[in-house]
Amino acid sequence: MPRFEVLTHVIAPPDRVFDLSLDVGLHITSMAGSSEEAVGGVTAGGLRLGESVTWQARHFGILWRMTCAISAYERPGYFVDEQVSGPFKYWHHAHHFPSDGHGGTVMRDVIDFAAPLGPFGTIAEVAALRRYLPRLIRIRNQHVKQVAETAPPAES
Rank of each mutant, 00 (worst) to 15 (best):
T43E: 05
T43M: 12
T43R: 05
T43D: 06
A44K: 13
L47V: 06
L47K: 00
L49P: 01
L49H: 05
G50V: 07
S52V: 09
V53H: 00
T54N: 03
W55S: 02
W55F: 10
A57S: 11
A57H: 11
H59E: 14
F60P: 03
F60K: 09
G61E: 04
W64C: 08
W64H: 08
W64Q: 07
R65P: 10
M66C: 14
T67M: 08
A69S: 14
A69M: 12
A69T: 13
S71I: 09
A72S: 10
Y73T: 06
P76H: 04
G77R: 05
F79Y: 03
F79D: 01
S85G: 09
G86D: 01
P87N: 09
F88C: 07
K89C: 08
K89A: 14
Y90K: 14
Y90P: 05
W91I: 01
H92Q: 10
H92W: 06
H93L: 04
A94C: 14
H95A: 02
H96W: 08
H96D: 12
F97W: 02
S99K: 05
D100K: 02
G101N: 11
G104T: 04
V106T: 09
V106A: 07
M107I: 01
R108D: 08
D109P: 00
D109F: 00
V110I: 13
D112F: 03
A114N: 07
P116G: 12
P116F: 11
L117W: 11
F120G: 07
T122R: 14
V126P: 10
A127H: 07
A127T: 09
A128D: 15
L129N: 00
R131M: 15
Y132N: 11
Y132M: 13
L133M: 07
L133V: 05
L133E: 01
R135Q: 10
L136M: 14
L136Q: 09
R138W: 02
I139H: 05
I139Q: 03
R140H: 03
N141P: 02
N141K: 03
N141S: 02
Q142H: 14
Q142E: 11
Q142V: 11
Q142D: 13
H143P: 03
H143V: 14
V144I: 12
K145I: 08
V147K: 04
E149C: 11
E149F: 14
T150Q: 11
T150K: 07
T150H: 11
P153H: 04
E155G: 13
